[in-house]
Amino acid sequence: MAGSNHEHKEIDKFIDRFLSRKSNRRSFLQGIAKTAVIGTALSAPGCSGDGILGIKEETALAWGEYFKGNYRLMTHTERNTTIQRLERLARLRDGVDVQISSRGPREQVLFGYAFNLTRCEGFMNCVAACEKENNMDRISKTQYIRTFELEHGKMSVEAGNGKYFHEVPVEGHFYMGVQCFHCENPPCVKACPTQATWQEKDGIVVVDYDWCIGCRYCLAACPYWGRRFNWNEPSVPKEELTRKQHYLGNRKRKKGVMEKCTFCIQRTREGRLPACAEACPTGSRVFGNLLDPKSEIRFVLENKKVFRMKEDLGTEPKYWYFID
């Protein structure tokens, strides 16, 4: 009698403790993740023994990835955990060692870009450098940068040729590059139903590839065709892979999610130039900190005649065109 009474008290205590535990979204998700991992362990008892409980390490990592939250809302520890998982998965699945950075925006930095229409001769070194740096899918030949060949007397990409394949520069023509303009008032960010895309403090509009559900509403909302969708499973040859990566930048994407130009976040947050600006042989691409009065971009804005594309839409691109 006494014993069972004691037992009852123990159970009551346990229930009290359970009920008084503060439950929030995070612990809920972690709970699910743990249950899923244990579930996998129980359902696959014969798995030849790596990892705890006999589950394959890769499976456990994949479940952890599936139940993680939106990057922007993660704590510092959570960010580190997911990066460790992603780096380990890259090793297990693709046999490569990558370093994924989670470096945040620097204080007093707002990135801007300017494109010199007089100088560009349409060589497209920028396009090639971008493809290499950002680990772009080689199957669909996705490109963030488009260059258009325009006849003198025209000033809209619609009138230009975006598919030229001949020796450049062509007499009587000039060249105009377009990419994501990292608008101050980005329609894509407003459109996203899950907040999987947002503007960072340094002005870069980024996508959380693991949070995007692939509805493509942002693609429809962008007036500059700045966004790309992964229609197939993207693939990059191992030997061509850029291994210095950023969570919000050039890390591996998967099929069914959006991606876009990030001003090479993995480079520019380390104080380097974006790959396109570095690769340009004519010096047509100017990149820098808009808040630094001594920067080249500020010089361009203050001393050249500049314009932006489709200004009537009120998107406030941080990408200017200018003429020498």
Binding site: T194, W211, C212, I213, G214, C215, N230, K255, G256, V257
Partner: peptide, 11 residues
Amino acid sequence: DLGGPHRAWHL
């Protein structure tokens, strides 16, 4: 139409 239907819970 979703690219990641299994991630629809994000919605």
